[in-house]
C-alpha cells in the first residue's frame, strides 16, 4: 500500500509476492505521473551532461557543448568544474514538479527521485557533499533549501559551508557583468574545504553559472575538485535564462 506523492492514487495495484517478502522499496510515484518525466540518456556533453542529440552539430565541439566551450574560455572559470551530472530534462512535467517542490514548498517531493540521486552520487567520487545555498532571506521565506533537501533525502550528509548574499536577479545583468560581476557566494567563516573533493548538489542546471561561481569559490578555498549533480537540466533554448535561487 503506497500512494503516489503527486496524484495520491495507488502506485502499485498488485503488490507481488517478491515485493512482499523482500521489502523492495515501493515506487513513490505512480506510473502515470512518472511517464512524462524524461531521463537524460544517450550522448551528452562531457562536461555538463547536456544531451547532444537534440543540439545542432555545430553547437558542440569534440563532445563538449557550445556553452561549456565558452565557459572554458573564461580564464576565471576554466577548469573549476570537473563536470556536471543531471538526471532529468527540465520538461513540462519537471517544471511542474520543481514548482511544487521548491516554490510551493512540498518538501516530501524530495523523496520522489531520492533513489536515483543516491545512485548517481555513488558514481561520482567525493568526500564532501555541499548543497547550493539560499540567501538567509530566501531560506526564511521558503522554510527549507531545496538542494539540501534533495541531498538529505538521498541519504547524504550535506554540509552547509557556503553563504549566499541576497543580490538582484542575475537575469538583469548582461553575460559579461555576470561573469565578472559580484560574487554572491562566499565560504562561511570557520568552514574548510581544503583538499576536499566536493559534490555540489542543486535542483536544476540551467546556464551552469551557479555551479561555476561556486566551484570557483571552493577551488579558491583549496578544494581539490568540484563536480555537480542536479535533478534537472534546462534545455538549450533557455540557456541564457534566469539564474534563480
Amino acid at each position: 500500500m503506497s500512494l503516489c506523492l503527486l496524484c495520491e492514487e495507488e502506485t502499485n495495484r498488485q503488490m507481488t509476492w517478491r515485493q512482499f517478502f523482500t521489502l523492495v522499496e515501493l515506487p513513490l510515484l505512480c506510473g502515470k505521473c512518472l511517464q512524462p518525466f524524461e531521463r537524460i540518456t544517450g550522448e551528452c556533453c562531457r562536461l555538463c551532461s547536456r544531451p547532444l542529440a537534440v543540439l545542432d552539430a555545430s553547437f558542440s565541439i569534440d563532445g563538449v557543448c557550445h556553452d561549456c566551450v565558452r565557459w572554458e574560455k573564461e580564464s576565471l572559470y576554466k577548469g573549476v568544474l570537473s563536470g556536471n551530472v543531471s538526471l532529468y530534462m527540465y520538461n513540462e512535467a519537471m517544471k511542474a514538479f520543481i514548482a511544487r517542490f521548491k516554490y510551493r514548498g512540498d518538501y516530501l517531493l524530495a523523496k520522489a527521485f531520492a533513489e536515483e540521486v543516491r545512485q548517481a552520487a555513488r558514481k561520482i567520487p567525493h568526500d564532501m557533499v555541499v548543497p547550493v545555498p539560499l540567501s538567509e532571506e530566501r531560506l526564511r521565506e521558503r522554510g527549507f533549501n531545496q538542494a539540501e533537501a534533495l541531498a538529505r533525502e538521498a541519504g547524504m550528509k550535506p554540509v552547509n559551508v557556503l553563504e549566499r548574499s541576497h543580490a538582484e536577479k542575475q537575469s538583469k545583468k548582461s553575460r559579461e557583468e555576470r561573469l565578472r560581476g559580484a560574487q554572491v557566494f562566499r565560504l562561511k567563516e570557520n568552514s574548510s574545504v581544503h583538499r576536499k573533493t566536493i559534490l555540489l548538489i542543486d535542483d536544476i542546471y540551467t546556464t551552469g553559472a551557479t555551479v561555476r561561481y561556486i566551484a570557483y569559490v571552493l577551488k579558491q578555498a583549496g578544494a581539490a575538485g568540484v563536480t555537480s549533480l542536479t535533478l534537472a537540466r534546462g534545455q538549450g533554448r533557455e540557456r541564457e535564462a534566469v539564474l534563480e535561487e
Binding site: G105, D106, Y107, L108, L139, R140, R142, G143, F144, N145, A149, R152
Partner: peptide, 15 residues
C-alpha cells in the same frame, strides 16, 4: 500531512 526541517521555527514542522 508531511514534515520538513523548518528553517523558520527550527523544528520538524508539519505542513
Amino acid at each position: 500531512f508531511a514534515f520538513f526541517p523548518c528553517a523558520r521555527c527550527g523544528t520538524s514542522c508539519p505542513y
